[in-house]
Design a protein around this nucleic acid. Structure first.
Length: 525
RNA sequence: GGUCCCAUCGUCUAGAGGCCUAGGAUACUGCCCUCUCACGGCAGAGACACGGGUUCGAUUCCCGUUGGGACUACCA
């Protein structure tokens, strides 16, 4: 868990020392943080002399942005912001089958909602095909790649056969030395070294090594000229001058393949930081299949964007015992050194708590503004910000999400009827008619409808009747809110206003009279 | 199966060999506050996966076991 080697040198991050290349040109003379000579004491330069940090978030538009993606995007964004760097958005849409335009839009909307704004992009891999082509040529010319015209279907069969035989399902390299030329069905494969090993020092995981014997000759460009993931990533990260690749540790196995491509291209690679994955309740990687919800779904459910950022930041990263971070603090404190290695599980309970925390912290006016948005769909409430603020103030400490608050606030905007059945059965009974009448009268007599005045009145009524306040409060509550749960009656009454309160009390009395049999009401009144 | 990664309360985590009687947060339980429900306050229960080393001393370093996860495509 502790940094190894140079990772701790006075808190400085080793970075590439050369300026980013211009327009597709390779960067020259780059300090390679992954190499064996990584950080000799005293070689780290500080501040201005170093290259600007450049990170990227590169989702593929094959689905909505979900929590896992937002987690990765946040760490990249935070790291870039922390170091005054550049955050790049890149859409990896080389999977023509599954990529969809609507997801490109949704991903951007999600990031924007979260406030994870990008400085460059969105770049689209599908519009950079000529660049990949150029790099493939280079590899081909250098003898680091070769054409392969094996039939994909047959490859699949071979793979299954190997698997069935208990062998490793790898490409058998039968085209490797054939010297095949370009052709309509020929894909390009990377010529992976047969022996040796690739290793790097991960900014988060420390040293990692893979034997080349474990790797096979991956396809880097399909027969149709579309590059595959591992190749496109490398070319993009080179041409976009990415300095730090921060991604989920599910990409660790891809890294040696990419490092080999950098090497074949003669380019020093960026540094890598593989962050721990965030798992679902079932401990499996978050994915659509495991019920990972789109980020926008959390917006719909009434979570604040900063709740997501704060929560996500604390999965895999920490700053001592601190749990609550303002956006500025997140940026100020974020560092790769404090990113842990082990995967974390998304905990809805804590997530809800965090959201409720922010709901309580915000000003009533702000919460009210948000609440109006959630109510608009359902209730079409009054568009008066002041009114929403007063309503919000009574609900802030009682709700965990804005959607929940909208529900709880509904009675402020419309008639409470129909009453909740159980509540009505228990409190809207003939025995309480007199009480409701008295309350109505007393309210009219109050010089001012304030929380204190109403509370005092309720207590007086209770005292006079020799009962507890709760006994007078509940019938009134059901009459006004339609249920046994609501904010304090003093606030409710003050907000609803004299006229509306009188109407609701009257309605409740009428309801009781209509719903009880004549002799029952005679007996109990 | 193979390769790689990971391992502190249920969950997120603090922990840089003695500061640990292992801290915080959440969730849970109890009490207090209280017109309901919440909020809030106080208290409680709850973890170093196991086995070997190294060391005067391991939660911490090394090895192994076990467990979990990821990857294993002309997906990303």
């Amino acid at each position: 868990m502790r940094p190894v080697g140079g990772r701790r040198v006075s808190g400085q991050q080793p970075r590439n020392c050369a300026p980013p290349g211009k327009k597709g040109r390779l960067r020259r003379e780059i300090f390679w943080p992954c190499g064996p000579n990584y950080v000799k004491k005293g070689t780290i330069r500080t501040g201005k002399a170093m290259t600007t940090v450049r990170t990227r978030f590169s989702p593929s538009p094959t689905g909505s942005l979900h929590l896992g993606g937002a987690h990765t995007a946040l760490f990249n964004w935070l790291y870039a912001r922390r170091h005054g760097g550049v955050f790049i958005l890149r859409i990896e849409d080389t999977d023509k089958e599954r990529s969809q335009e609507k997801f490109v839009a949704e991903i951007q909307e999600s990031l924007t909602w979260l406030g994870l704004t990008w400085d460059e992009g969105p770049y689209r891999q599908s519009r950079r095909l000529h660049i990949y082509q150029e790099y493939v040529e280079r590899l081909l010319a250098a003898g680091a790649a070769y054409y392969c015209d094996c039939d994909p279907e047959e490859l699949k069969v071979r793979r299954e056969t190997m698997l069935a035989r208990g062998e490793k399902p790898r490409y058998d390299r039968r085209c490797r030395e054939l010297g095949l030329g370009r052709g309509p069905t020929a894909a390009v494969r990377f010529k992976t070294p047969l022996s040796g090993a690739t290793h790097w020092r991960d900014r988060i995981k420390g040293p990692i090594a893979f034997d080349h014997a474990e790797l096979d000759d991956l396809v880097i460009m399909r027969a149709d000229g579309i590059p595959t993931y591992n190749f496109a990533v490398v070319v993009d990260d080179i041409t976009m001058a990415v300095t730090t690749v921060i991604r989920g540790d599910d990409h660790v196995p891809n890294t040696p393949r990419q490092l080999l491509i950098y090497e074949a291209l003669g380019v020093e690679p960026p540094e890598f930081a593989h962050m721990p994955l965030m798992l679902g309740q079932d401990r499996a990687k978050l994915s659509k299949r495991h019920g990972a919800l789109p980020v926008l779904e959390y917006r719909r459910q009434g979570f604040l964007p900063h709740t997501l950022n704060n929560y996500l930041a604390r999965v895999g990263w920490s700053h001592g015992d601190q749990e609550i971070f303002s956006p500025e603090e997140l940026i100020r404190y974020f560092s790769l050194e404090n990113v842990g290695k082990s995967a974390g599980i998304f905990d809805m309970e804590k997530f809800l708590w965090l959201n409720s925390h922010y709901l309580k912290e915000m000003s009533p006016l702000e919460v009210g503004g948000n609440l109006a948005f959630y109510l608009a769909a359902a209730e079409g409430g009054r568009p008066d910000p002041g009114y929403f603020a007063r309503v919000a103030a009574t609900l802030q400490a009682r709700c965990k999400t804005l959607a929940e608050m909208a529900q709880a606030a509904a009675f402020y905007f419309r008639d409470p009827r129909p009453y909740e059945a159980q509540a009505a059965a228990k409190f809207l009974i003939p025995a309480n008619v007199a009480l409701l009448r008295e309350i109505m009268g007393r309210l009219e007599a109050l010089p001012e409808l304030t929380e204190a005045a109403v509370s005092g009145m309720l207590k007086d009524v209770a005292d006079a009747a020799g009962v507890k306040v709760v006994n007078v409060a509940q019938p009134v509550r059901v009459a006004l809110a339609g249920k046994t749960v609501s904010p304090g009656l003093g606030d409710v009454i003050a907000i609803l206003g004299q006229e509306e309160v009188a109407r609701r009390l009257q309605n409740a009395i009428r309801f009781i009279e209509e719903n009880s049999s004549p002799d029952e009401s005679a007996r109990r009144t």
